[in-house]
Each structure stands twice: as structure tokens, then as C-alpha cells.
Design a protein around this nucleic acid. Structure first.
Lengths: 121, 121
DNA sequence: CCGTATCCCTACCGATACTG
DNA sequence: CAGTATCGGTAGGGATACGG
């Protein structure tokens, strides 16, 4: 283990709080939905299946507050709002891609492990 | 966006459930605590600051069920239990390391972005 | 179209006490 | 040492209705 003064293992370290935030239900998927460029609110909602309006708005606001996403309002009627990853957001996306791929690669193995564990009781 | 049939963006895809699990409060840190080799329950508890006995046990059981961690009981008195990452667990750890490093690298910038956002109201 | 506001429930999770 | 059991507060988050 490293001897760094700051690490996510310390309860009061800011990096731990960052990890907690990323670890919420929708942040990773929302960031992924913005990977290919700016997207409208409705487009994100469509892509991140199962997210409620409330949680999507809440997640986007939190990401904006953290400087990971920008929010641009086009003064039109009907309203038009676009969200886009910042440089920091894109750097986070970079490390999330392998995680996503890992989940896809291992989902079958994990499902198998679960049923084996459950069978043994 | 990819045209893969399975992706975490689909609500019913097993990879989404995997991502949900990893995204809980303690899984990432618990896996990190096992990165350097087998560890006893109490050693893990010490390293993952702030975790309660209940949540640590629950997290370890879930990881074991998913085939990411093995649990070995040494029949001694007092009891001696060791946890160790499986190959699958180690492969997950590989993709989590950059995420951890990202959190450390960007915690200051994010904190700054937050206070800026909050100041503007 | 893109939100906000409210209600309300439940699942997470910490605290505490107890056991092999 | 390494758990299990139980209780109870609280925050997450869905459903619904409404606003600019």
C-alpha cells in the first residue's frame, strides 16, 4: 500500500467523498451517456434506461456542481438544454470505460458464481 | 454508441446489476483493502475507515457470492478468517486502480468547482 | 421541452447487544 | 476474533402533479 497522506481509505479524505459520489446509482451511466458529445436532456433520459426525471435532474446538477458537466440553455421555445462533459469529466470517463467493459465481460461469470453460491446455501 | 446487444444502459442487463453492486458504498474500498494479498477480517476493518461491522460482513459476503473474494476459515481458537481476491476480483481491481487515482488527482479541483458553484448560488 | 415541488415508502445502514 | 440479531433513524428515490 502507498504511503500517501491522502487516500480514499481515510474517512475524511476528499477523495473518499468523490468516490462516494461517483458510486451513486446514476452518475456513471449519465457520464457514459455524454461520452460521444453534447446531448439534450431528453436524449440522456432515453439512453439511461430506468432513470426517473427527478434523479436525472439531480444527478446532472451534482455533476455540474462538481465541474464534470456543463449545462447550456438555448433561449428558444420550446426550451432546449444541452449537457456536455468538461475536460475533467472526460478524464473521468476515460477511467470508467474499462470498468464498464469489465462489467460486460464478467456478467456471465458472476451470475454463475451467484447461483453456485446460492445452491450450496 | 456501440450496437452491442448487452450494455449497462439497458435496465435489465446483468452488467447493469453488476455496476449497481460495485457502486455501493463499500465494495470498491473493500476490494482495495485486499489488493496486496489475503487479509484477516479485523485487518480489513482497520483499513477501510468508517465501515461498520455489519456493513463489512455484508459486503464481504456479497463479494464472495459474486466470486470476487474467497473466505477461508482456520479452525483455531480464537477464530481466524482470511479473505482473498479471486482472479476475477483481481481483474476488477485492475480497472479500479485508475479510478482511485483519478479521485486523488482531482479531489482539489472538484472541491474548488463546488465552492464556485455554491458561491454563485 | 425541461424542469420543480410534494408526498411517501422502503431499503440502507449505523448503533447496540449478544454468541461460538 | 469474527461474527449474528435486532432496532430504528434517515436519506434515496419513485410517482405524481404542476410550472416557465
Amino acid at each position: 500500500m502507498s504511503t500517501l497522506e491522502y487516500s480514499p481509505y481515510a474517512a475524511d479524505c476528499p477523495s473518499r467523498q468523490l468516490l462516494d459520489r461517483i458510486g451513486d446509482r446514476w452518475s456513471v451511466l449519465t457520464i457514459g451517456a455524454l461520452a460521444d458529445g453534447p446531448r439534450r436532456y431528453s436524449a440522456i433520459a432515453t439512453r439511461v434506461q430506468g432513470v426517473s426525471q427527478k434523479m436525472l435532474t439531480q444527478t446532472l446538477r451534482a455533476l455540474e456542481r462538481d465541474g464534470l458537466v456543463t449545462r447550456t440553455v438555448f433561449p428558444e421555445i420550446p426550451p432546449h438544454v444541452e449537457y456536455e462533459l468538461t475536460d475533467t469529466g472526460r478524464s473521468l470517463r476515460t477511467v470508467l470505460v474499462p470498468l464498464e467493459q469489465w462489467a460486460i465481460d464478467h456478467m456471465d461469470g458472476v451470475a454463475e458464481a451467484r447461483s453456485g453460491y446460492d445452491t450450496r446455501g
